[in-house]
Simulated scan of single mutants.
Amino acid sequence: MDVSSTTGTSSSSAAPTSMTGLADQYDQFLTLLTTQLQNQDPLNPMDNKDMVNQLVNFASVEQQIKQNDNLESLIGLLNSSADAAALSYIGKDVQVEGDITHYDGENPVTFGYTPPKDTQELAVKIYDSAGKVIREFEGSTSSQRHTVTWDGTDQNGDPTEPGLYYFAIAAENSEGDTVHGTVDITGRVTGTGTSDSGPTLMIGDAEYSLGEVMAVRGAGNA
């Protein structure tokens, strides 16, 4: 998960290099075979078995090139479909697995967390982009998902600046050991981006992959 919008290179970028290599082999093989046929000794022509073997190799290289062409087309179609799917999320509220969200300075932010079993104590903490705890309060210890709506104020009740904020839970079990639960963010998709793994969704300045989407709640239904 990235916290800023980046444009990465598609994972299929290696395909042109592979295609170039196959094309070179194809051209070299064709040139070699043609040269052999032109320069063979009429009194001692190339053995039919050798000719068949070379033609089989020729057909194999040609088939690989066609397969790569088809694969390139399929990858292009899949990427186009994924891009279109990402665009359909714009304007909707999505629940994503992660701990980073964007506060716009006006609208409350919704977090979610699920404590592990045997949690005895749990504190909810909100950090600013510098890693400073700006808000902390006691959370529920029951092992189910809980939601928190943060109004954008710090521990003293003062408003905070717009920007990226981090959400975390600090939990302990009955033996006093630290345990880790899951956290999620709910926010409105404001745009899309790209990364090495495919299209991403932007929630303000926070960026999540499509695979991190846990639920789509629709506009206004956080």
Rank of each mutant, 00 (worst) to 15 (best):
V56G: 09
N57K: 06
S60A: 12
Q63P: 08
K66S: 05
K66T: 15
Q67I: 10
Q67W: 00
Q67T: 12
N68F: 08
D69Q: 15
N70K: 14
N70L: 09
E72Y: 06
E72Q: 08
I75W: 00
G76Y: 05
G76P: 04
G76H: 06
L77Q: 15
S80C: 10
S81D: 11
S81H: 05
A82Y: 14
D83A: 13
A85I: 10
A85Y: 04
Y89M: 12
K92A: 07
D93P: 02
D93K: 10
V94M: 10
Q95C: 14
Q95G: 12
V96A: 05
D99M: 00
T101F: 06
H102Q: 13
H102R: 00
Y103E: 09
D104M: 08
N107A: 00
T110V: 13
T114M: 11
K117W: 01
K117E: 15
D118C: 00
A123Y: 13
V124F: 00
K125F: 03
Y127R: 07
Y127P: 03
S129F: 02
S129Q: 11
S129N: 05
G131V: 07
K132V: 15
R135W: 02
G139W: 00
G139I: 12
S140N: 11
T141S: 06
S142W: 05
S142R: 07
S143T: 09
Q144R: 14
Q144D: 13
R145Q: 12
H146S: 12
H146C: 04
V148F: 03
V148Q: 11
W150P: 05
D151F: 07
D151L: 11
T153L: 01
D154E: 12
Q155K: 12
T160Y: 01
E161L: 06
P162V: 10
P162W: 01
G163Y: 02
L164E: 08
Y165R: 09
A171P: 00
A171I: 01
E172H: 08
N173A: 07
S174W: 05
E175I: 02
T178A: 12
G181N: 00
G181W: 13
V183D: 02
T186V: 15
G187R: 01
R188S: 04
V189M: 04
V189T: 03
T190C: 05
T190N: 02
